[in-house]
C-alpha cells in the first residue's frame, strides 16, 4: 500500500535527523581523535550537569511546544538548524499567515517546511560568509586593546537577558538574584563553580515561582 505524504515525511525525517545527530557528535569526535585530546571527565560532568539541567528541560519542552506549530517536516528540519524562537518559528508562522493557512493542517505542514528550509539555507550561507570574512580581521579582534570588550561577554549578555526576563517576572527574580549576589559576595571562590550554581538558581527560582503562583501573585 502506498505511503501517505505524512508517513513519507516521518520516514525521511527520521533518517535525516539521526544522520544530523551523528553529524553533530562527529564534530567533537573527529577533533578529539585527530588531535588526540579528550575532555577532562570531571570537569565535563560538572559543566554538562549545570547546562543540561536547564537546556535539556527547555529543549524538551520546545519539542512539544513547537512541533504542533511547525508540522512534521518543519520540526525535522527546524530542530537541526536551531535558532527556533528567533527565526524558524516566526518564519513558519509568517509564511502560514501570508497564505491564510492554519498550522496543524497538511497545507500548514508543507508551507512551514518550505519557509524553514528557505530560512535555513540563507542563514547557513550568511553565517559561513560572515565567519570567513572574520578571518582577515582576526589580528585586530585579538588585539589587547579589545581584551576588555571580549573579556566582558558574560556581563554584556546577562545584562540584556536579565532585562528581558526580570522585567517580565520581577517578583520571581527577587529571591534568586538576591540569593546569588549575597552568596557570591560572601563566598567569591564559588565563581569557579557556576555550573553547579546554575541548577541551584533554577531550583530557587522555580520554588519562589510556585509559591507566588499558588498565592495568585503572578
Amino acid at each position: 500500500m502506498e505511503k501517505t505524504y505524512n508517513e513519507k515525511v516521518h520516514g525521511w525525517g527520521r533518517i535525516w535527523m539521526v544522520s544530523a545527530l551523528a553529524m553533530m557528535v562527529l564534530v567533537p569526535l573527529v577533533i578529539s581523535v585527530v588531535i588526540g585530546v579528550w575532555p577532562d571527565p570531571g570537569k565535563f560532568l560538572q559543566a554538562f550537569f549545570g547546562i543540561a539541567v536547564i537546556y535539556w528541560t527547555v529543549t524538551t519542552i520546545e519539542v512539544f511546544t513547537y512541533a504542533p506549530m511547525l508540522g512534521s517536516g518543519g520540526t525535522y528540519l527546524g530542530f537541526v538548524t536551531g535558532n527556533l524562537t528567533s527565526l524558524k518559528v516566526p518564519s513558519a508562522l509568517n509564511a502560514m499567515n501570508a497564505l491564510d493557512i492554519k498550522s496543524g493542517s497538511e497545507q500548514g505542514d508543507v508551507v512551514s517546511t518550505i519557509a524553514i528550509a528557505a530560512s535555513s539555507i540563507i542563514t547557513t550561507i550568511i553565517i559561513f560568509i560572515g565567519a570567513m570574512l572574520l578571518i582577515p580581521f582576526e589580528t585586530i579582534l585579538d588585539s589587547p586593546a579589545l581584551t576588555p570588550a571580549f573579556g566582558n561577554i558574560i556581563p554584556a549578555l546577562f545584562g540584556a537577558l536579565g532585562v528581558v526576563y526580570i522585567s517580565r517576572n520581577w517578583k520571581i527574580a527577587i529571591v534568586p538574584v538576591l540569593f546569588m549576589i549575597i552568596l557570591f559576595s560572601v563566598v567569591p571562590s564559588l565563581a569557579s563553580s557556576v555550573g553547579i550554581l546554575v541548577p541551584v538558581g533554577c531550583l530557587i527560582a522555580i520554588f519562589a515561582a510556585r509559591i507566588l503562583y499558588k498565592k495568585g501573585a503572578l
Binding site: 536547564i54 528541560t57 527547555v58 558574560i154 546577562f158 537577558l161 536579565g162 526576563y165 526580570i166 517580565r168 517576572n169 520571581i172 527574580a173 534568586p176 538574584v177 540569593f179 546569588m180 549576589i181 552568596l183 557570591f184 564559588l190 565563581a191 557556576v194 550554581l197 546554575v198 541548577p199 541551584v200 538558581g201 533554577c202 531550583l203 530557587i204 527560582a205 522555580i206 519562589a208 515561582a209
Partner: peptide, 13 residues
C-alpha cells in the same frame, strides 16, 4: 521563565 531566571541569577552573582 523561572529556569532562565535561575541561570541569569547565577551569572549575575
Amino acid at each position: 521563565s523561572a529556569m532562565f531566571l535561575g541561570m541569569i541569577s547565577a551569572f549575575i552573582g
